[in-house]
Design a protein around this nucleic acid. Sequence first.
DNA 1: CGTTTTTGACCGGCGC
DNA 2: GCGCCGGTCAAAAACG
Length: 354
Amino acid sequence: MDPWISSQPSLSLDLHVGLPPLSRHQAPVALAKPKVLLEENFLQPLKKEPEVAALETELQRMGEENRRLAEALTAVAAKYEALRSQYTEMVAAGATTTTGPSSTSEGGSVSPSRKRKTSESLDTAAAAPGAQQHPHGLHGGQHPGGAAADQMECTSGEPCKRIREECKPKVSKLYVHADPSDLSLVVKDGYQWRKYGQKVTKDNPCPRAYFRCSFAPACPVKKKVQRSADDNTILVATYEGEHNHGQPPPAPSQQAHDGSGASKNAATKPPSPPRPAAAAAQAAPHHPQLHQQQQDVVAAMSVGGEPVGAAASELIRRNLAEQMAMTLTRDPSFKAALVTALSGRILELSPTKD
DNA sequence: CGTTTTTGACCGGCGC
DNA sequence: GCGCCGGTCAAAAACG
């Protein structure tokens, strides 16, 4: 995104929020080559001239898309700030009544012996659902105040359901390009996942796999992975909740570099060959990942030329925008850089500085 | 032998 | 109330 944004007068904020310029060398590859899966096409010699033209066209298109994303991002950031201040007020107001327990109860809620059959679980279920999903609001974007509100409202009965509906764990969707021949529903995102179920859903012949974060037993994050009904080369990963821990310690730079150094991390899915284009796609606050995600989505959008319908493309695009916005606004460093850059820019443009 | 995956059964929500 | 459906459990199997 960098080159275009920096060239826009309205957006030339010279933001340096960690996006490595080196990642640019990857982008044209993913953009120019529409990620054709057929190997015979893959082996065709590149024709330079049309390639350049296609590149330029693609670049323009991406530029336009980036502009929209940037606008969306600005809007989201503004909304985020508004929500944050709102939340701060709520916390300040509700701090006296709801101090503590809800945020500390997430650890025990996922005990292995949890059983739904037992009727007593109803008691815990009444208290748990709202609170357990939001362990920490550290990264922002979620609804930490919601748990408290939930509990408060639950006493009155009906509003509980609606509020719980609104305060569901943050859900983010991710579209990852996957080899159709690879039947495993594995989306490598740097975390360790344990599959706990698989189900064939009504609207999609492809089974949906359910994963839990296995790195931290108390981690509330869940992941659903299912192939897109429109294009089975696309894996749709739906993340619910947020990790209450960092990335798994081994191979800290797995995604920024090549991932070949992953020892225990890769051991989670050893059989799967490393696929840089499909790996590292998690809504975590790492800019390279974001860039990677964009490549993935772009690749997914242009798979084989046109297999993904316009509606699907639109959907993917929208999700990409949401995801980027979420990822960026969740990143404190990005926010800090944004604030710094914006304030600096505003001061700079202000005719009456003094 | 410990961990992960598979898979059928179960549970609860929701629409009719 | 009933049936459908998505999500989860947990025993068994597979794997390293």
